[in-house]
């Protein structure tokens, strides 16, 4: 059995695992996975950040666990094993949030629990962690979770800013009730921004911009 040459920790290949999901292979805009949560919890930046951190944790730890177990998991029941791992991690996240950030946990409600069904996580387990060593899996988990996080935060910035005139809960456009700041000049909060359809439209516009900048992403018909 020949031994493979040892790879440096941050080889080119590993770096690519982080950079690719951020843009050209973004899990949301290119692979179009995990859309449901992107639509549901992007009303406020706070929620988006907490959600991103939760996914980051579940994704990285889960990827490592699956990668460590990859040779032990019988392939016929692998999906169930993956589910058990992700469910256990999500329960941990949920309990931590409920203990330390009760208000945000309440707002995120079922969506933290629904990380279990997030296609990005199952997709990475299946496509990457099942076939790679723990270290690259960790990096891959980080990259994909960050790709998810970036999009969530971009969408939520637009939605919170134009929908409620705030960012992370701070008044940006002035106070709506007092009517100062931009409100004084006739700015009115756009309610559509708070409704889920607008998240879909914003994600759509981001995909549009991304594809017109990088035509290689456009599928052939």
């Amino acid at each position: 059995m020949s031994k493979e040459p040892k790879e440096p920790l941050f080889s080119k290949k590993n770096k690519k695992l982080v950079t690719e999901p951020l843009a050209d292979n973004n899990p949301i805009t290119v692979q179009v996975l995990g859309i449901c949560s992107a639509l549901a919890i992007t009303v406020q930046v706070n929620q988006a950040i907490v959600m991103s951190l939760s996914v980051l944790f579940v994704m990285m730890v889960g990827n490592v666990i699956i990668s460590l177990l990859r040779n032990l998991i019988p392939s016929r029941i692998r999906i169930i094993v993956q589910l058990v791992v992700v469910a256990a991690l999500v329960i941990v996240v949920n309990e931590v949030l409920a203990a330390y950030m009760p208000d945000i946990s309440e707002k995120l409600s079922v969506f933290v629990g629904l990380i279990i069904t997030n296609c990005i996580i199952m997709g990475r387990f299946e496509a990457f962690a099942m076939a790679n060593k723990p270290w690259p899996s960790l990096i891959d988990g980080f990259g994909n979770a960050m790709g998810y996080a970036i999009l969530l935060i971009i969408v939520s910035v637009f939605r919170e800013l134009f929908g409620s005139g705030t960012l992370m809960g701070y008044q940006i456009f002035g106070d709506y009730i007092a009517g100062n700041g931009l409100y004084e000049y006739g700015y009115a909060n756009n309610n559509l921004m708070i409704l889920p359809p607008m998240a879909l439209i914003i994600v759509g516009i981001i995909i549009w911009v991304q594809r017109s900048r990088n035509p290689s992403l456009i599928e052939e018909h």
């Binding site: 009115a188 756009n190 309610n191 559509l192 921004m193």
Partner: peptide
Amino acid sequence: AFLFFAYP
């Protein structure tokens, strides 16, 4: 519809 939902 846009106005209907945005500025109800």
